[in-house]
């Protein structure tokens, strides 16, 4: 999107060319937080990648599309073979979105306590769902997917987002380069939540290679029992094979309550109606920023708030 003119202070952008759904994945806006950063040193700026601008509504479009493309190229998908994975929502929505447009059937193991919005969206997109024990969370869904694959390896392509290198490579190839370009190489700190760890691993590796000394801060729930959708408490969860514990300079824990409060602040003070993991990311990014005299802190807001609306307690808080 090239800037072609400015009219009364409103920038007019060249429209995107007509194309396919997959062509509009990535290249998301980098938005500056303004009001929530008013207390910081003037030399400190905080930005967030607005990942809900992806066609499937979340950052997961990036790894899902890369996983699918790589599998198609290697002949692991196609001819009716079913894409199988476990998800707590967004990755499943991304698979189902591209599965629908590319003609790939999708089966997902998903914890039965995933929000009704997610389950409805997945059904609307035609994914086949296998509900798993809500007591076992995302690790239970992961075990189920792997079990289904072992029973019928001929039926499925097991995408395995936790162990598939195409997950982090998607961020190495897109999220990282976009951030370098959008900050003109001025990023000093990168904050990302740990779920599969794909975002931190791929983006972090790219930033280190390109810019050298960018500080990488991983974000995780403060406890194994939490309400931070999409995030994992690494010390107690099944560790993703793609997770490189040596990569982050540090790990900052965040409570579900702090993330919830931040979600409301982002909505009411920045006009950013985002999901719970974005609240966690913002809370950590602002904490990191508050310790600096100068710097450019970048984080990622994985999705918008729409899929969390059934959580009345969250949105009606003060």
């Amino acid at each position: 999107m090239a800037d072609i003119s400015t009219l009364s202070g409103v920038k007019i952008y060249k429209a995107r060319e007509a194309g396919n759904l997959e062509d509009v994945v990535g290249n998301t806006p980098l938005l500056q937080l303004r009001r929530l950063t008013a207390h910081l040193n003037p030399g400190v700026r905080v930005f967030a990648k607005a990942e809900w601008f992806n066609p499937g509504g979340s950052i997961k479009d990036r790894p899902a599309l890369n996983i699918i493309r790589k599998a198609l190229k290697q002949g692991k998908l196609g001819d009716g073979r079913i894409l199988l994975d476990s998800t707590s929502g967004n990755m499943g929505i991304a698979y189902a979105t591209f599965g629908a447009t590319l003609g790939i059937p999708v089966t997902l193991a998903i914890p039965a306590n995933a929000s009704s919005e997610r389950i409805s969206i997945l059904k609307a997109l035609g994914a086949k769902l296998v509900l798993t024990d809500p007591l076992e969370g995302s690790d239970g869904a992961l075990r189920k997917a792997s079990e289904l694959y072992e029973k019928h390896p001929e039926k499925y392509f097991y995408a395995n987002q936790y162990d598939n290198p195409a997950n982090w490579e998607a961020h190495y190839l897109s999220t990282g380069p976009e951030i370098v370009e959008q900050t003109q190489g001025e990023i000093t700190h990168f904050v990302a939540g740990l779920g599969t760890s794909g975002t931190l691993t791929g983006t972090g590796r790219y930033l280190r290679e390109m810019l050298g000394k960018v500080e990488l801060i991983a974000t995780q729930p403060d406890s194994p029992f939490h309400g931070l959708e999409g995030l994992k408490h690494m010390p107690t969860a099944i560790k993703p094979a793609i997770f490189d514990p040596q990569l982050p300079d540090r790990t900052q824990e965040v409570t579900t309550e702090d993330a919830h409060r931040m979600v409301l602040q982002l909505a009411r003070q920045e006009g950013l109606f985002v999901g719970i993991s974005s609240g966690a990311a913002a809370w950590v990014a602002l904490k990191v920023a508050s310790e600096l005299d100068q710097g450019v802190v970048v984080t990622v807001f994985p999705d918008a708030g729409y899929k969390y609306l059934s959580d009345r307690q969250l949105w009606e808080g003060n």
């Binding site: 707590s88 306590n113 929000s115 509900l131 939490h226 309400g227 719970i276 959580d311 969250l314």
Partner: peptide, 17 residues
């Protein structure tokens, strides 16, 4: 009595599981 963390604030399909 079942204790369950909400994922995305949801109760989803717990009753159906």
């Amino acid at each position: 009595l079942m204790i369950i963390p909400s994922i995305a604030g949801g109760k989803g399909q717990v009753a159906q599981w």
